[in-house]
Design a protein around this nucleic acid. Structure first.
Length: 311
DNA sequence: GTTCGGATCGCAAGTTGTAC
DNA sequence: GTACAACTTGCGATCCGAAC
């Protein structure tokens, strides 16, 4: 089929199909074949330009079943994409919730360890006992655990919104590589001199010479820029999610270490914490509620503690 | 062969940060 | 407060591989 612009749609589909192999090739194909999307059909180029209404008008009359099947497939996919996005959003929210929970737990564990350490030192002073090597080891691990910064990572602003994730690339952002008037030009970043006024289309090249971009050139560059920003945003989000997952893993590891330390302390010093991690001081009203009944080590401690409380 | 889940892409529109 | 660039979000289309 030849369009009113003299474009062979079949050839375009072939170009676009092969172009899917690499984004670079596809970008070239798109650059060389502007404004023909609506005539070519939705499977070749940008979705918005190739809307379903346009597609309907271009539908091949000799293949109604095929078109119907494609339309149904698209409907399904559309719905599926919605569900996928929703699910991913919920997964991210779950990750963020988990971070908050672990940070809270970490804070409580830290506090308890510090209290127990002080109690242990005081007990040692009062009884005149000298700490052995295992105590030294214990204090060292407490220090290591408490000085770690993983639990201090925050991903949210005060209002609860996600902080802008800053990667190494963002600290020193590279200029944006754009093809302006047939010449590869770097715009933005810290070192590039070329500038574009995106509203007026006034373009200052790297030599300081001023040129006026045509509306179509400006629109094309604006799309290219937005395309790159969208890609950067997606990459940034991936990094952010990886970072959250790593933080969760770190916090879980640290919290486990702190629980192990508490278990040891409980075995060694009965005045420190009770088997279920509730303080056993007589004046219980002065002691903050720890709220750690759900901790998994408690059962283990209870058993061990009962077996040999004086260890 | 069809369906499903996930990944990727480009686009438009909306939001945020910042210089003035 | 405003203008503007940078950035984010939501959407639909497409592709791919796995499961049925």
């Amino acid at each position: 089929m030849i369009t009113k612009h003299g474009v062979d749609t079949q050839a375009v589909h072939q170009i676009m199909s092969s172009a899917e192999q690499t984004e670079a090739v596809r970008n070239v194909a798109q650059h060389l074949l502007p404004n023909i999307c609506a005539e070519v059909g939705p499977s070749a180029m940008t979705p918005k330009k190739c809307s379903t209404t346009e597609k309907a008008t271009e539908a091949s009359p000799d293949a109604p079943d095929s078109d119907d099947r494609i339309a149904r497939s698209r409907d399904r996919n559309r719905e599926h994409a919605r569900r996928t996005r929703l699910r991913k959003k919920q997964q991210l929210e779950a990750l963020q919730k988990r971070v908050k929970e672990l940070q809270k737990e970490s804070k409580l564990l830290k506090q308890t360890i510090e209290e127990c350490s002080i109690a242990s030192i005081l007990l040692g002073l009062s009884t005149g006992e000298i700490s052995d090597d295992s105590d030294e080891l214990d204090l060292e691990s407490v220090k290591n655990t408490l000085t770690s910064d993983a639990q201090d990572k925050t991903f949210f602003t005060i209002t609860g919104k996600r902080k802008r994730f800053v990667s190494d690339a963002d600290i020193n952002p590279p200029p944006m590589k754009l093809n302006i008037k047939g010449k590869t030009t770097y715009v933005g970043g810290n070192n590039s001199k070329a500038q574009i006024n995106w509203k007026t289309g006034v373009y200052l090249d790297d030599k300081g010479e001023q040129q006026q971009l045509t509306p179509s050139e400006l629109e094309e560059l604006r799309r290219e820029r937005n395309r790159m920003h969208a890609k950067m945003t997606r990459d940034r989000k991936k990094l952010f999610i990886s970072s959250v997952e790593k933080t969760i893993a770190d916090l879980e590891k640290q919290n486990k270490e702190m629980k192990d330390i508490l278990t040891k302390q409980a075995l060694r010093n009965a005045t420190c914490v009770s088997p279920d991690f509730a303080p056993v001081k007589k004046d219980a009203k002065d002691v903050p509620t720890l709220g750690m009944d759900h901790y998994s080590p408690s059962k283990k401690v209870k058993t061990d503690h009962n077996a040999s409380p004086s260890q």
